[in-house]
Amino acid sequence: MAADVIDRLPVGDDRIVVQRAGAGTPVGYLHGMIGTPPGAPILAAADEAGLAVTAPCLPGFSGSSPTQQRRHIHDWLFHLSSIVDATDLAGRPVVACSIGAMVAVELAAIRPEAFSQLILVAPLGLWDDDDPVTDPYATTLSVQRRLLTKDPTVTAPFFDDPPGMDGDELVEYGVARYETRTAAASLVWPLPDHGLSDRIHRVETPVTLIWGTDDQLAPLSYLDRWAAALPNVVAAHTVADAGHLVDWDRPATVTRLVADAVDEPGSRP
């Protein structure tokens, strides 16, 4: 197994944390609401699935410098566009989760060559008044943790303080966690609909959809909405015993589905 590598790349005015793990087919990974802290299970599962994962963190997430440019979704998709170029992910398959998937689809709508393939894990960005996405921030931190995954213990690398850390280091760790939560909240506030439904028909990129059967944030019913709205869905999968962050609850299942998707004939760049 290839060792995890953490870089801090200059991208515009920001320093972007990029993690790399595994060996095999190159795949990008865009995190969901809690970023990609060290110990994120998707990284550990990459190698066994034959994937070489490059995982950049959007501004504010997991140690990437916070941005002052986050007025609206367009700020974010320009951040992502720059990051995709800086990390050589342009034209490659990318697995994108939750809010990461939301930004990736927005980018694909205006930049068709950005990704060869999108594997979207419980994407946010569509909204149905009769079946609303749960607000993960109108609750306490402990309840939010239980909302995100079927098994709340799997997100310990994000929510729990690292053992043995104390003093100023622990304070700064807490500040960084708060920055990640701030960046995530800013993407879905006041609700995760930035008008994507007006643009989603432009997404020509082949899409594989993955959804947890126990998603408490974006109900499983949204899988059908996404499948109907996207013009080029090639596969859709549900994952049992997984909540919203499927990649945290069932990382090996996700990497296997990703490996299957990128191994499909004609799917490689």
Partner: peptide, 14 residues
């Protein structure tokens, strides 16, 4: 759950 939305506090206050 309505008292501490992430981002409302400044990093210095945190």
């Amino acid at each position: 759950g309505y008292a501490d939305p992430p981002g409302y506090k400044t990093p210095n206050t945190v």
